[in-house]
Amino acid sequence: MDTVLSLRDLTVEMAGRTLLDRLSLDVAAGRIVGLVGPNGSGKSTALRCVYRALKPTAGVVLLDGGDLTSRKLRDSARSIAALTQESHTELDFTVEEVVALGRAPHVQGNRPLTARERALCRQAMERLDVAHLAGRSVLALSGGERQRVLVARALVQEPRVLVLDEPTNHLDVRHQVELLSFLRGSGLTVLTALHDLNLAAQVCDRLAVLSCGSLVASGDPAEVLTPELVRKVFGVDATVIPHPRTGIPQLLYDLSPAPTGLRTAAEAPSEGPHE
């Protein structure tokens, strides 16, 4: 299978700290690769290098075998669409206007959208269950609704690679499942960071586990998600069982006593009734 995106010895150093240390990773066409790891492990840093919000200290990001930095930013945006954790929609645009912004890298000047592009926007809104919000201001939406609007905007770019940083943030269970099911069946090439290991196992073809900026394991979810690795990287004990229908590994976490210095609600002193 052809490799679309490659990270080669990607290193990011900032303020005397190494945020990413010689990360190498391939993403094949039509596959979903997930970055997982604790907070601060380098997941978002790696994604920022891919969508060019951050310049690596060393190493290179290759798109179709060519150095991504050799392309103009507009050309990169035609090939790579990103949903970031820092995505904000502070302007009082309607949902359909925000989604239509996904065509910006493809549009010269003030050219209006073509009939095909308008249909593309409608289809993306329908896929993400926001078509009924088309005329609403994005400022009036819930966090989950905004998240779905921004995913729709990314789809409208028609990218070669879709980069998603915690795409299930703010989404309720139904919309988490619908989004990941869509990605699973879409045929898109996706690089995503996910906190939820069970969701990552369900949607990703391959997982790359990061810890302290370094790659510690990669492979399919069944190879990677072992109790030993989860204990070593995440510091928790877990039992791994196959999903009864799909056989995909799922983790059952073993809850430990509260760490020293933290008290449970039962142990905490009473503050008296609230008025």
Rank of each mutant, 00 (worst) to 15 (best):
C121V: 07
P259Y: 10
M1C: 14
S79I: 11
A154Q: 04
V224H: 02
G109W: 15
V224L: 00
R71W: 15
S44T: 14
L128H: 04
R111W: 07
L215V: 08
Q108I: 14
E13Q: 12
C49E: 01
L62R: 13
S76N: 05
T57C: 07
V216G: 10
V4M: 06
Q108T: 15
V224D: 00
C49Y: 01
A100N: 01
S6G: 03
R245E: 14
L210W: 09
K72V: 09
A258N: 04
S87G: 01
A100G: 05
D64N: 12
L179A: 08
V61E: 03
C212Q: 06
G34W: 02
D92M: 00
A208R: 00
P269Y: 00
T94K: 08
R74E: 08
A131P: 09
V149A: 00
R136M: 04
R146P: 09
R31C: 03
G102D: 14
S137I: 01
G187L: 13
G42Q: 07
V50M: 07
V12T: 04
F93T: 03
H175K: 10
L68H: 02
V177D: 01
R122M: 10
T239I: 12
V233D: 09
E271T: 11
L20E: 00
P159Q: 00
G261V: 12
F182E: 07
A46F: 12
P269L: 11
